[in-house]
Amino acid sequence: MNERTPRPVSAQQLLDVVAETLDPGYAAAAARRGPNPKRRWYDAPAVIIGAFLIGLILVVAYIRTNRGAPEAAKVHDSLVTRVRDAQHTADGLATQVSRLDDQLNAVRGSALSSAQLQQIAADQLAAGIVAVKGPGVLVTLDEPHQSTQSAGSGRGGTTPIGATNILTDRDVRSVVNELWADGAEAISINDIRLTPTSAIRFAGEAVLIDFQPISPPYKIRAIGNSDDLATNFAQSDVASRYQTLVGVDHIRFSFDSATSLTLPAASPTGLKFATPGRAHQ
C-alpha cells in the first residue's frame, strides 16, 4: 500500500500514521496517470458502488444501534402498565373492603346492644381501622432540592442507593417512634394509617408503609394533645438530629401543630393466630 521509500526509523512510521492522513494510493495513482488523465469506463460505476456501500453500512450501523432503544422502552411501558393495573386492582379491592366494612357495621349495629357497640367502636378506634380526626402535629421530611454533593458523607449505617436518596425508612421510623413516645394517639404517613401491625420498611429506593411504597415528601400526621406533642417533639433528640441534618445534608424538615387533622382508616388485618388470652398476673 505504501509506495514511498521505506525509512529506517520505525518511529517515523508511527508519525506517518498521524501526518499522512490521506491514503498514499491517491497520490500514486495520480502520478501514474499524469496531469491530464482521461476518464476510464469504470470510474463512475466504481464511485457509485463505493459510495452506495458506505451509505448502506452507515445506515445499517445506525439502525442496529438504535433498534435496542424502542425495545427497552417497550419493556418499560409494559412494566408500567402492569404496575398501574396492579395498583388499580388494589384500589378496587380497598374500595370493596370499605364498602363491605360499612355493611358489616350496619349489620352489627342492628344485631348488638349499644354497650357492645360502644366497646367495639373504642376498640376499632384503637386499632386504627376507622378514620379519625383531631388536633395534633404535622411533621414533614423531604429530600434535598437537587442531588446534593454531600450525599455520601457518612450518614451512619445508611448506604443511600442513589445520591438523591438520603432519607430512608429509619428516618421515617424514628420520627414515628418519637411521636408515639410523645403521646400520639393515631399516626398516618402520606395518608397511610399506621396500625398496631404496621411495618415501615425500605426496598429499592422507596420507603414502604405496610408494603405500600411512598415517595417524599413524607408527611407524618399525628393526632394527640397538639401542645404536648409539639413541645415534646421539639425537645426530642430526633427533632434536633434532623434540624442538624437540615444544615448538613440539606434535607427539608419541619413540624407544626395543627388544630384539626384527619387521618384515614387502615384496612383491618385479620389476626389468624392470635386469640384472646389472659395475661399472667
Binding site: A29, G50, I54
Partner: peptide, 25 residues
C-alpha cells in the same frame, strides 16, 4: 473512505479505483 475521497477530490487526485479498493481492503 468518505473523508479521504473528498479530500483527494479537493486535492484533484481523486481516483475511483483507489477509492473503492482502499475502502474495501
Amino acid at each position: 473512505a468518505v473523508f479521504g475521497g473528498v479530500r483527494a477530490r479537493l486535492d484533484r487526485i481523486f481516483d475511483a479505483k483507489v477509492f473503492v479498493v482502499s475502502f474495501i481492503s
